[in-house]
Each structure stands twice: as structure tokens, then as C-alpha cells.
């Protein structure tokens, strides 16, 4: 079999594996919310649930398909997924697809630049710190990123909000827009509102990636092929850029992909601090309210993102390192 054929087989196998994983996760997405204590209808009616007549409660259960046995709910759930129907929220008076569409675009607008900026920052500064291992530059950068790594998300975000928005008045105190703007003004307004949240997520995302890159680079500099490269008379910069970073890329791609998937849901704290309507708060609210359709819909989207990011990482792996995806893998 040719190398191209081997790679195609590798990708096909991966796709099969991902397909099975997707089915498994979809089933878990259905089961997990129902395994949690608490009832969505009781939660909907709140502390006055008992004061409602049982008929009202039964009608509400029937409306959301919760009056039938769990296995029938499961088959209905799978059937609706085949039609790409995510259902209707129990608590938010809106379709799940509509809710996700309204939130996901903002989350992506927040997360995508954060992952890219954070990753570039980590790759550049991590390489620099590893390259100049045990130098003052290394000490300063490592100390800085260690502080960021240990800093709770809410603290960093709140510090940025307090300093740059409250005290210096450079940025707004929250939300995605000021309201009432259109066209280019609207775009610039959104950018102005997203600068601090993106900085928060970028710094936090960069902090742990930095440490991995720095350690990888400093270790690789001791490898035989680097010694050989030096012996060939290559400059340190060329060794770093062409030979070392290439070897750091596979674990780095893996980290970046994973962080993208998790940041879609994990931006919750940043969303709360900056009063943003994103996927994090949507998922949090749904879990708190046991809003099964919203939870299922959000988890489905997250699953797709995590799997897509991993698949992309797998494919990029084989591009970054041709040995991956060949025979025996």
C-alpha cells in the first residue's frame, strides 16, 4: 500500500472510531441529565410546585415528553436527532436550536481568538524560554506564566475588569454591545467589548501551554539531532525554528485542540464576570434547572466541537510528523 493509501486508511479508521464515540456520547448526554437528582418540572414551578394541582404538573410533563418511560424518551431523542431537531427548552421559552445559535456565535467569537492568541503566545514565549533556558528571560517568563497558571479565572478576569474598565475607564463593564449601533460601529463596539474577555482567556489558555512548550523545547535541545545540527554549523535560531519547534508541534497541537473544545464550555467564569451571553452560562443555567433538552443540545454541540477539534488535531499530527499515520499506527 502506498503512503497516501495508508494515510487514507488511517483517517477512515479514525472516522469510524469518532462515529462510535459520538454515538456513545450522545447516549450519555441523554442519560446523565436524567441521573441527576431533581425534576425539571418541579424546578420550573419552583418553591410553589406543591401548590399546583397534580393535573397541571402531569400536563407539563406530557408537554415535554417526560410522562413516558425513559427508554421511549431515549428512542424519541435519537429519532429527533436524526431529523436534527433539538427540541424546546423547558425553562427558556425558546427552541434549543435557537438558543444555541444565539449563544454559540458569541462563544466562538470569544473562544477562537483566545485559543489562537493564547497558543501563539505560548508557542513563541515558551520556545524563547526553553531556548534561553535558565537565563533571566526564562526565569521572568516562567514566573509570570506560573502566576497566571495558578491564578483563578475569576480573579484574573475581575482584576482586568476592575483596572481597565472601572478605574481607567478604557473598556465597558460588561455585555457584548452597547446597544443601538449598526454597521461598522457595531463591529467595533463588539470588538471593544470583547478585548478584556479575550485577553483573560488568552492569558489563561497560554499559561499551561507555555509550560509544556518551554519544557519540551529545553529537553529537545539536549537531543542528539540538535547536537548533529549544531555540528553541521546551523545557527541556534534555525535549529529552534526548523528542527526543535517541529518536534514540539504534535503535543502542542493536541493541547490547542483540546483547549478549543473545552473552552467552548469552560468560558463560564469569564462570561459571568463580563456579563456575556455565551454557551457557558447557557449550559450552567440548563444544568441548574435540569432543562434536559437544552442540556442535551449543548452537550451535543460540545461533543461535536471536542471531536472535531481532536480529529483536526489527528490530521494535523500526521502533517506535522509524517511518521504518524503510517504503518503500524
Amino acid at each position: 500500500m502506498t503512503i497516501k493509501g495508508e494515510r487514507q486508511t488511517h483517517i477512515f479508521r479514525k472516522l469510524m472510531r469518532y462515529g462510535f464515540t459520538l454515538f456513545l456520547i450522545l447516549s450519555l448526554n441523554f442519560a446523565l441529565p436524567r441521573m441527576m437528582p431533581g425534576d425539571p418540572i418541579a424546578n420550573l414551578l419552583g418553591e410553589q410546585a406543591r401548590r399546583n394541582d397534580p393535573q397541571t404538573i402531569e400536563l407539563l410533563k406530557a408537554e415535554y415528553g417526560l410522562d413516558v418511560p425513559v427508554h421511549i424518551q431515549y428512542f424519541r431523542y435519537l429519532k429527533s436527532l436524526t431529523r436534527l431537531e433539538l427540541g424546546y427548552s423547558i425553562h427558556k421559552n425558546s427552541s434549543v436550536a435557537g438558543l444555541i445559535a444565539a449563544r454559540l456565535r458569541w462563544t466562538l467569537l470569544l473562544v477562537f481568538p483566545s485559543v489562537v492568541i493564547g497558543s501563539i503566545l505560548a508557542l513563541l514565549l515558551g520556545s524563547l524560554a526553553g531556548f534561553k533556558s535558565r537565563s533571566p528571560t526564562d526565569y521572568v517568563l516562567t514566573a509570570l506564566f506560573l502566576i497566571l497558571y495558578t491564578c483563578p479565572t475569576f480573579l484574573l478576569a475581575m482584576l482586568l475588569l476592575s483596572i481597565f474598565s472601572f478605574h481607567l475607564g478604557l473598556f465597558p463593564l460588561g455585555n457584548l454591545t452597547t446597544g443601538g449601533t449598526t454597521g461598522l460601529k457595531y463591529v467595533l463596539d463588539i470588538a471593544w467589548h470583547l478585548i478584556l474577555p479575550v485577553i483573560s482567556l488568552s492569558l489563561l489558555g497560554a499559561s499551561y501551554k507555555f509550560l509544556v512548550v518551554r519544557n519540551s523545547v529545553s529537553q529537545i535541545f539536549d537531543k542528539q539531532f540538535v547536537v548533529a545540527a549544531r555540528a553541521k554549523g546551523l545557527t541556534e535560531r534555525r535549529i529552534l525554528m526548523v528542527h526543535v519547534i517541529r518536534n514540539v508541534l504534535p503535543p502542542f497541537i493536541s493541547m490547542a485542540a483540546l483547549s478549543f473544545g473545552f473552552m467552548v464550555s469552560g468560558a463560564l467564569i469569564v462570561e459571568i464576570v463580563f456579563s456575556l451571553n455565551g454557551m457557558g452560562t447557557l449550559i450552567y443555567d440548563a444544568v441548574m434547572a435540569r432543562d434536559y433538552p437544552v442540556m442535551q443540545g449543548c452537550f451535543l454541540i460540545l461533543t461535536v466541537f471536542v471531536l472535531a477539534a481532536n480529529l483536526a488535531a489527528d490530521i494535523l499530527y500526521s502533517v506535522a510528523d509524517p511518521r504518524i499515520g503510517g504503518k503500524g499506527t
Partner: peptide
């Protein structure tokens, strides 16, 4: 959490 709490109280 709120949901589990009201479930138990109810």
C-alpha cells in the same frame, strides 16, 4: 443545587 434542593423539600 437548586433543583435537587426543591426536589427534596417537595
Amino acid at each position: 443545587d437548586s433543583s435537587g434542593f426543591w426536589d427534596a423539600v417537595d
